[in-house]
Design a protein around this nucleic acid. Structure first.
Lengths: 317, 317
DNA sequence: TTTGCTCATGGGCAATTACTCAACATTACC
DNA sequence: GGTAATGTTGAGTAATTGCCCATGAGCAAA
């Protein structure tokens, strides 16, 4: 072998080394011996082959599309965590898939041996996820609800998930003994000043991981369906740009919290800081697209669990 | 995480881990942390992904030496297609390398939008190539087997590749519901006269691309090892000049089909015309050298995929 | 219920691979 | 012809990976 300096010959060698390594499955020592070079050089050729993209790896599994979408979501919206599950082509259920994925992620946090604080919001999707959790003993952790558990008619709010979670997970849990929406700013101030509530608020602010649903606005959205807002209030909000809500906090197309009379009455703990907490939203479905996009755009979340078609939309334009 | 015992979920995890490792370039420690499992488990998932062939590595770089050998092969034997892959110096496997290259070539044909007919022979090398094919939807093409799929003992012939191909490629496929070798000329005539078989025979003759293995003769060759021919029959054939076989058709040193009682009983479709079909052989290895050389000399093929050392030998003298 | 089997798990350890550094060679430029 | 810039090499070392083993969970047969 004459001149080793020419690029062509070097790429040839890289290809050959890469072939022996990846296709033939030889070790770099064997490659070095076969090609009459040192092991280090063999290693360099192999990594050159990778760097020059001579080696193409393909994953033949439906999951690969989802992983790629997740990667792109992470990049585009500067997320810490993005998980994409295959879309149910029939679109039958709004929770199939992401419930399991959400449960798996919650479980990963719960499995940690060091004590952490997990905050949960509300909503059908999150409830479905929590229902997938296996029984676990986690005395070291604390679980706190971000939203009140008293519905508009005074009954227990059905989609408050912390109680479902407490059924499965043996850990201290902290509900919010409040209505979801107070009747006035003053009432909220009074309620939030109770010792019990204050400690829950403080706990929520320290959450290490936060799981929330994302609600779309509209007369068929959860806020109306569950009776928290009347039709005309909702329509007025939408007129003023309201696009989605997380834990009752209503935000616009850019994901900015609206400054209006509804947000002033929301009793929920503020969404924990995205600096100190992993705030993961669970949502999918065409109806929620604008709400999800706005939440990500406004950095209300730094984690998302969604499905393929939603991810594709979020990346689409 | 619900059921961790189910195979499907495990393969999903394996795909995830494999993707993170090979595509995203993460270390196994990072994967373990991300998936909430131990490093050892992550390692197991990665190697499972490899073992289950979820991960396919391909080298996209024509090494100039191989290119040159291919060029000279094309010229010397008047071939339409010649592809040479690097030789594994340890020569451990007889299919490593050309399987990937063969799969890539098959894939190129399958990707064509216009409907074509692809014929396949049999053999270990071809089987290995077909196993490398990614799932594809090709409703426009038809795939036909040149060889029967019933083994000498009546069971399904293991190295009949059309079924493996049907697993990956969604296209109409046409097996040959026949033994590989008939018991007599008369039986072959009868069998070939069946309507189903006649249409398959006709289809094979029209093949646009044909992929076949090349078998060497000898008591260790595939015909004997797989039980199609007895030792003494084989020895008698060799005495009479038999050098190799393609789809069971036995030929001599010049690549001329032998006129004997074995060829009279071969149930296979005749090798498609080299005028109208691209007939590509996949073979490498010293033991096959005479068989390959004869096949090329006799123009039984107009395409070859082989390895460096074989190519060098074919050009050598 | 018990027994025996299979298989996933995590720890430990050896093999393998990636990276850093300093020396040397080659090329480009003055 | 000298000199700087660039790139390559081997040695050493840190990081990563592959494999074996003991353990325990899950499951089917006894």
């Amino acid at each position: 072998m004459a001149k080793r300096s020419d690029t062509q010959g070097r790429l040839d060698d890289a290809a050959r080394a890469g072939w022996l390594y990846y296709v033939a499955g030889r070790t770099q020592d064997e490659i070095a011996a076969a090609m009459g070079i040192s092991r280090q050089t063999a290693q360099r050729l192999v990594s050159l082959a990778v760097a020059e993209r001579l080696i193409k790896v393909r994953l033949d599994h439906p999951i690969s599309v989802c992983l790629e979408l997740g990667e792109r979501l992470r990049e585009k919206f500067d997320l810490q965590h993005a998980e994409v599950v295959p879309s149910d082509p029939l679109g039958a259920s709004s929770t199939v898939g992401i419930a399991e994925a959400g449960a798996a992620e919650i479980e990963r946090w719960l499995k940690r041996p060091d004590p952490i604080i997990i905050a949960v919001g509300t909503g059908r999707t999150l409830k479905a996820a929590v229902d997938q959790l296996p029984p676990m003993e986690c005395p070291q952790h604390r679980i706190v609800s971000l939203t009140g558990n008293i519905g508009p008619d005074g009954s227990a709010a059905f989609y408050n998930v912390i109680f479902s979670m407490a059924d499965a997970i043996k850990a201290r849990h902290f509900p919010m003994p409040l209505p979801v929406l107070c009747s006035s700013v003053e009432e909220r101030a009074t309620l939030h000043d109770q010792a019990l509530v204050r400690s829950t608020l403080a706990l929520g602010a320290q959450a290490d991981a936060t799981f929330v649903g994302i609600g779309e606005l509209g007369v068929d959205g959860p806020l109306c369906v569950d009776g928290f807002l009347a039709r005309d209030e909702m329509l007025r909000l939408i007129e003023r740009g309201a696009t989605g809500e997380i834990c009752g906090w209503i935000y616009d197309r850019q994901g900015r919290l609206l400054d209006n009379d509804v947000n002033e009455r929301v009793a929920s703990v503020p969404i924990p800081s995205r600096e100190t907490s992993r705030v993961i939203g669970l949502a999918q479905g065409k109806r929620k697209w604008p709400a999800i996009k706005a939440a990500l755009t406004g950095r209300l979340l730094n984690g998302i669990i969604t499905d393929e078609s939603t991810a594709a939309h979020l990346l689409g334009d």
